[in-house]
Each structure stands twice: as C-alpha cells, then as structure tokens.
Amino acid sequence: MIYTLLVLSSPTSGHGARTAYRFAQAALARGHDIERIFFLDEGTTAGSQAAVYPQDEESRLQPWIELATHHGVELVLCISSALKRGILDAGEAERYEKPAATAHPAFVISGLGQLIDASAKADRLMTFAR
C-alpha cells in the first residue's frame, strides 16, 4: 500500500504529530511505501531546527530526520503555514532578509500542490489532526 500522510498537529501540543511518525515507522517496517509526508498549519513547526525540547523527553525532531535520511521519505512543509511561524529554509531566509534558516534540511518547503500530487499517487491519505 502507498500512503501519503498529512500532519496538522503541532509537535508541542497533543500527540498527533508523534502518532504520525510512529505510523510512518510502522508502515515502512511492514513493507508499505510512503509517497510523501506533508505538514500543514501547526504541523509545520515539526520542521524547526531551532526548537529546543526538554532533554528528558523523547526527541520530536529526530524521528522525522531518520525517516528522511534512512528511508528516503520526503518531508514537505506548507510554505504559507511555515513562513508565518518562522520556519524558513536558507532560500526563504535570504529572500525575506531574516537572520537564519530555521527549517531542518531534512524538510523541504513547498506549496499545497505537493499534497495534492502526493494524495493522487497514494492509495490512502492519512490525516493526523489536532
């Protein structure tokens, strides 16, 4: 089965974001494919490399990085949701004259077309809501 994941939940509130990467890990372990993981609205803050989480808690960034680097899963942050939350890649930081890139390089910043394209290619679109 080919899955596309839509993550709406914030990594800092509730458990939707965690459920999303746990689902992705489990699906891959069972031999399924992940077409793309798209982050929208509060979900985009998952891509921040500037966030500092409590050290005695599970990392909320590392599982995503591992999905991208070990399994080649594409992680896409919605550009309009990301920019207004201060999540910028190097190109956007330069364009808007901001002091630093805050998006982790494992994530790509792009438009809603990336969600539409990925859901058209997938058997299932899974939404992880708030």
Binding site: L8, L40, D41, C78, S80, L112, G113, L115, I116
Partner: peptide, 8 residues
C-alpha cells in the same frame, strides 16, 4: 489553511 487547500 483548509480554505487555501480547497482553492489549491
């Protein structure tokens, strides 16, 4: 965001 997604 949901309205923007609908437009897209």
């Amino acid at each position: 965001a949901a309205v923007d997604l609908s437009l897209a």
